[in-house]
């Protein structure tokens, strides 16, 4: 019994005192900083954090179950954003379904239709890549770093593909400018940002329910804990791996679209640049730990936004990197432990 509890704890799907301590510490830190920090930056940070969380949760699941650092994860995000652009402009636009400025948002309902389609496209691509590349390497029993190396090749190829089709410049979803909401304490929040945060919350809750309440979720946790034991207990590990890719890729694709909406632009390098905050969140939370990734994403999101009060905003990735290094110095396995 103890062993099982320990195993489940390591996969990180049980709330431990460490999680409580971590959250309380984060809240206390936030409260302590409040008098010195613009509230608006904190809010922006939470929104950025929720987008990071979508990417980081998928990344940490892949890390925990397939046991390698998927360097192409950022480019899965880029792919998602550009596939949505293709659906909006190249498919829906051609058949006369157009629109922007839906309600309080800058984008129109075509983006809402494109969102699940883009996610499905990236999921299909991720599973095809697994069958073509990663599965063969796994069967050969290669070292985890070789898998990561292969994912670097995949990342480069995906970005090349995006640039061949769309060129290297910036793109946009069709948009109309919209008023920001003015809230008390001088907080200004864009409706698009609220959309991004709400979508992220829905998906994170969905993943949580999937992991805790379904047979596949249980099988995924078991595989993360001990792949050999999972295999001999009759779990179809290949199916588990495909589900892991599906969840990770779908979350990444949505995160890519949300990032493009939030930043009001698409850029081929957007995903690669986003790798640093993603991995910082994963490492902060402990590899393989989805709760940790969520909390880590919030820490990274808030602190990199808040840093812009004193630093040039373009230093945000460097801030995420510095926090990651600082945490590794104190707690080498991340805030919540992990593998």
């Amino acid at each position: 019994m103890e062993a099982i509890r320990d195993g489940v704890r390591r996969v990180g799907l049980v709330w431990t005192p460490w999680h409580t301590t971590g959250v309380i510490a984060a809240l206390a830190l936030a409260a302590g900083l409040l008098p010195f920090v613009k509230m608006g930056l904190m809010v922006n940070g939470v929104i950025l954090g929720s987008i990071i969380a979508l990417g980081a949760i998928g990344l940490t699941l892949i890390y925990g179950i397939l046991r390698f650092a998927n360097v192409a994860h950022g480019d899965y995000m880029t792919m998602g954003a550009y596939l949505a652009l293709f659906v909006v402009g190249g498919v829906l636009g051609r058949v006369g379904i157009e629109g922007s400025g839906l309600g309080p948002f800058t984008f129109g309902y075509p983006v809402l239709i494109a969102l699940p389609l883009a996610a499905a496209g990236v999921v299909a691509g991720a599973i095809a890549l697994d069958a073509a590349v990663y599965r063969r390497l796994r069967e050969r029993g290669v070292n985890a770093v070789v898998l990561a190396m292969a994912s670097l090749g995949v990342a480069i190829a995906l970005r090349g593909l995006v640039q061949i089709v769309w060129g290297g410049g910036t793109e946009q979803y069709p948009r109309e400018s919209r008023q920001v909401y003015h809230l008390p304490m001088d907080v200004r929040i864009h409706p698009d940002a609220l959309f991004a945060a709400a979508t992220a919350v829905v998906l994170v809750v969905g993943v949580y329910l999937m992991l805790t309440r379904t047979r596949m979720g249980k099988a995924m946790r078991a595989t993360a804990d001990n792949p050999d034991l999972a295999l001999v207990s009759g779990i179809d590990t290949q199916r588990v791996i495909w589900w892991t890719w599906a969840i990770g890729a779908a979350l990444a694709a949505v995160a890519g679209v949300l990032l493009a909406v939030f930043q009001a632009q698409l850029l081929p390098i957007m995903g690669w640049r986003f790798l640093i905050p993603l991995f910082a969140a994963v490492i902060l939370g402990g590899v393989g730990n989805p709760y940790g990734a969520l909390v880590g994403a919030m820490v990274i999101g808030v602190s990199s936004e808040v840093s812009t009060q004193w630093l040039n905003p373009s230093y945000k990735p460097a801030v995420a990197f510095a926090i990651m290094i600082a945490v590794l110095l104190v707690r080498p396995r991340g805030i919540f432990g992990g593998r």
């Binding site: 390497l137 070789v146 190396m149 292969a150 995949v154 990342a155 480069i156 190829a157 090349g160 061949i164």
Partner: peptide, 15 residues
Amino acid sequence: NLRFLAIGVLIVAVI
């Protein structure tokens, strides 16, 4: 950009 794609494919193919 085709060269970009080729570099990625080349790395995967060699592995």
